[in-house]
Design a binder for these strands. Structure first.
Lengths: 338, 338
DNA sequence: CTGTTAGCGCGTTCAT
DNA sequence: ATGAACGCGCTAACAG
């Protein structure tokens, strides 16, 4: 590919002059600019951003490391992040860890090597090693969606506990006392926070620990199907199911349909995460909706502030917790109190 | 961040020795290796891949430029591409053009600047300018999903025409003669190819041009809703709707539900693109399923062959057309021939 | 307004 | 088995 030197030669100037024309820095005589521009066009010159980044000590790239772009929740977050990044003139790289700490480590290493200017991370596990490394390397990092066991980074997330609490209360108010909660891995704070909210609501309603029905699995369709099967075999069968993420909710609905159990007539179902309008035909599920897009935007802006030095590095880490919102639809039945 | 020189200094060796240890090239005495490794660990040294790429003249990065990661079809393609890329030791960058030629141009420019080793492109428009530029810059490029008006690049796509033909025949065999086709932009070959397949089937059934009912819009929910509304106002109303992509199909189902038109009792519906199992509760729609994941894998492998020089550059451009498959479900009703 | 020099961090080439 | 010099492509700092 053409280099700046070849352009300079053709235009009869020094490379630095070409550089100045391209980057619109410094003063250039109009005539010179035109000579350079025509040389650039003639050769189809495209500046090498590797070299530029090497000199400038910044790459203009951010990275979003998440667990699964296949999940509409994450694609929405990603769109928010991308929009915010590109509004600030940054490019965004997406990486999927599939909840694997090994993949996470491998991607982060690659991102460090690429000298991305900042990282948005949805931590695959409670493991803090990667985050410590980012700190050590002084790579700005914002944690997304999940809490850390220790306060080692800024964090933007939604209020899982409050959402789960509200959803559980809604069920309790409708008379449900046998509520099964199907959640993700105990390693993931959104999974456990939703358990906390559920638990809190049960306690307040005067139900003690032995009334809790909690299944831990993973935030996937397969795990949801498996847990749903187990719920259906319980005697007495719970009168309501609380699915702690969108894939589990869809799995529950699928399993119930296969088993010929009607919603909400035979059993009530509520879920966490709404689906985008483009992906549902007949929205039936009462859910807690998280501001996914906004979370992506906010986290990105927080990251950008860190790298433009608008925040004082000596400040304590910030944590932004976004409120969630109940969207009531028609998957909850009023039941007699048992 | 630490540089190779600081590591070298701490280890008491020359930078090049550190380089050799890191890249496992050349001979190194065990003792030296250990000194270097401990220095690397102590400083948390992470090699700068910008510099490496600059020297090696390759970046180990591929890019997939597509129209919309929000669409499950594309996320599936992306997963295929990512898996294939990472199996070969490459990283994959994702870019969304939203069908905008301007965004496409801007992203491609950035990718050229970043010196990605190769590009997978879903062209936003029939415009060939960007592809010519890639040729001029000698950046290996494979076109995905859509045909080019001129043969200027290798291409991997699915057989839209055959799929549309089969789907239309299925409707014709069930007795439908008033079939509305709701498709994307006339600028997009998958949209027009599906019209061709539809048209061909009608012709074969002895129906002439004035029996064609074709709406051109975009492959989005909004456009689908708008077109569906128009179909519902037609008199006589078509007995079947053929939605030429997944979002249009979902829009049609939504619109029909709102209008209280039952599927398939009142009207039959077929679609292009299946949804992943994780996103549907009760798969109802008879569709043409495209091998999205496989398309991503194949295109990536074709690209990789080009850059490892396994293909003769003098060869003509390849075009791989993947077969599609009808998945019959329950959205088509047998109707009396009008 | 334009050019020269030097160096970003690394690895190839050629010595030793 | 290890190192010195040079250059990848670009631009900051300093001259002129």
């Amino acid at each position: 590919m053409t280099t700046i030197r070849e352009v300079a030669k053709l235009a009869g100037v020094a490379p630095i002059t070409v550089s100045r024309v391209i980057n619109h820095t410094g003063y250039i005589r109009d005539e010179t600019r035109q000579k350079v521009e025509s040389a650039v066009n003639q050769l189809g010159y495209v500046p090498n951003s590797l070299s530029q980044s090497l000199r400038w000590k910044q790459t203009g790239m951010l990275a979003l490391v998440l667990t699964d772009v296949t999940n509409p929740f994450w694609t929405t977050v990603a769109r928010g992040a991308e929009d915010a990044a590109s509004a600030a003139g940054y490019h965004l790289i997406l990486c999927n860890t599939d909840e694997s700490p090994e993949k996470q480590e491998s991607y982060l290493k690659a991102l460090f090597q690429k000298r991305v200017d900042g990282i948005l991370l949805v931590p695959a596990r409670a493991d803090l090693k990667d985050i410590r490394q980012a700190r050590k390397l002084r790579v700005p990092l914002v944690v997304l969606d999940r809490r850390l066991t220790e306060s080692l980074a800024d964090c933007v997330r939604c209020d899982s506990e409050a959402g789960a609490y509200q959803l559980t209360r809604l069920l309790l108010e409708r008379g449900h006392r046998n509520i099964a909660l199907l959640t993700g891995s105990p390693q993931v704070t959104t999974a456990t926070d939703r358990v906390s909210g559920y638990r809190k609501a049960l306690r307040e309603a005067g139900l003690n620990t032995n009334r809790e029905i909690v299944f831990y699995g993973a935030f996937t369709l397969e795990s949801g199907l498996e847990m749903a099967r187990q719920v259906l075999e319980m005697k007495p069968r719970p009168t309501a199911i609380f699915a702690a993420n969108n894939f589990i909710a869809l799995a529950v609905l699928q399993a119930l349909r296969v088993a010929n159990v009607r919603v909400p007539d035979d059993i009530s179902v509520v879920g966490f995460d709404d689906l985008p309008a483009s992906l549902q035909v007949d929205p039936v599920l009462t859910v807690v909706a998280q501001p996914a897009y906004q979370m992506g935007v906010l986290a990105t802006n927080m990251l950008l502030k860190k790298l433009t030095g608008e925040t004082d590095p000596s400040d304590a880490y910030q944590e932004v917790v976004l409120p969630v919102e109940i969207v009531e639809r028609k998957s909850v039945q009023v039941t007699r109190i048992a």
